[in-house]
Write a protein that binds this DNA or RNA. Sequence first.
DNA 1: GTCTCTGCTTGCGGATTTCGCAGGAGTGGG
DNA 2: CCCACTCCTGCGAAATCCGCAAGCAGAGAC
Lengths: 172, 172
Amino acid sequence: MHSGTVASRSADPKDSRESKNGGRPPLDAVSLAIIEQLQEDGRRPYAAIGKAVGLSEAAVRQRVQKLLDQGVMQIVAVTDPLTVGFRRQAMVGIHVEGDVEAVADALTAMDECEYVVMTAGSFDLMVEIVCEDDDHLLEVINGRIRAVPGVRSTESFVYLKLKKQTYMWGTR
Amino acid sequence: MHSGTVASRSADPKDSRESKNGGRPPLDAVSLAIIEQLQEDGRRPYAAIGKAVGLSEAAVRQRVQKLLDQGVMQIVAVTDPLTVGFRRQAMVGIHVEGDVEAVADALTAMDECEYVVMTAGSFDLMVEIVCEDDDHLLEVINGRIRAVPGVRSTESFVYLKLKKQTYMWGTR
DNA sequence: GTCTCTGCTTGCGGATTTCGCAGGAGTGGG
DNA sequence: CCCACTCCTGCGAAATCCGCAAGCAGAGAC
C-alpha cells in the first residue's frame, strides 16, 4: 500500500533519471537523524525517536516505514559469523575480463557471498565469503567463483580475526 | 544485572580458555534460531519469535537480552552509505611489520574505519573506510592510516558500486 | 487567485507488545 | 538432602504499536 506512493513517484517524468542506487534526493536531514537513532538501537520505540529528532510518534512511524519500503535501510540483527558457527570467512579480490557487472550479478546470486562490491584498483570486484569450514570455502572459491564466465583470476584473504564491525555512520 | 551472570561464568576455571571472540560453547541451537528470526526482521515481536522457535515470550526476551549483553549480536539499522551521504568508500589492504594486532587496534579506534579484520594472504589487515568525500578519504588513508606505527604499505580499492549486502547467515 | 498533493500534527481507541516479578523444574556441588 | 544457579513459564500492569480521522501548512501546477 505504501509502495503505491513510490510507484506514483516513478511515474513522474522528472524522476526518469532514477537509477538502482535510488535517484532520490540524497536524504532528508530528519530521516538521517532517525536512521542514526536506529543505528544505536534498532528496537528503539518510535516515541523516543520522535522526541530525539523533533517529530511526532506517528510521523516517525511513517518515515521509518517508508525508509524500509524504499530499501534505504533495513533493521536486522548482525553477529560475528565466527561466533555463530561459520568458521571460515574470506575476502576475495577478483580480476574480471568483459562485463564486470554481469560477474557481480552472478556472485550476488550466491548464498555464500555476503558482500559484493565493484571497486577501482587492482581488483575489479571484491566479495566477502562466509562458509562453514575449509572444504566449503574451497568449493566456493575454486569451484564456483572461478567458474563464473568473465572471472580471470582471484586472490583470497582468509579471515583470522574480526576486530571491528560497526554500523554507525552519521553518528559522528 | 545480567552482566553479573557473565562475570560469574568467567570466574569458572573451566572457562579460562575464554578469549575475546567469546569462549562460550559455539551457541545454542535455539539461540541460533532466534538470531535467524531477527536477521529477517530486527523488530519482530518476542511472541512471534517464541512461536517460531518453540519458546515462551519471556524466554525469548531473556535470551535476546543476554545475546545483546554478551555482544554476540546487535540489532541495528543498516544502510547503503552511498545513499546516506557518504560518497566515498574504500577497502584498504595493509602490510604490517611487527605487531599486527596493535595496528589493528589503532585502526579500530578510528571512526572512519567501519570494518577491521586480520587476514592471511598478501595483506595482513583489511579495513573498510567510510568517508564523506575525496579529501576526507585522502586524509584518512594517506594521513592517518599510514601514520600508524607498524604500517609498512597500503593498497586502496575505492568503491564504485555496492552490489550486495546481507546479514542472513544461518538462513540457509 | 485556486486546487491539489504531500507531509506533519494531534488525538483517539484497541490490539499488541514489552517488562518485571513470582514461581517451578532441572542440574551440579558440597 | 540442601543450596545455588540457570532456564523456563505464567501472569498482570504499563507502554507501545498501529490504523484512522480531521486539520493545517507549504509547494507547485495552472
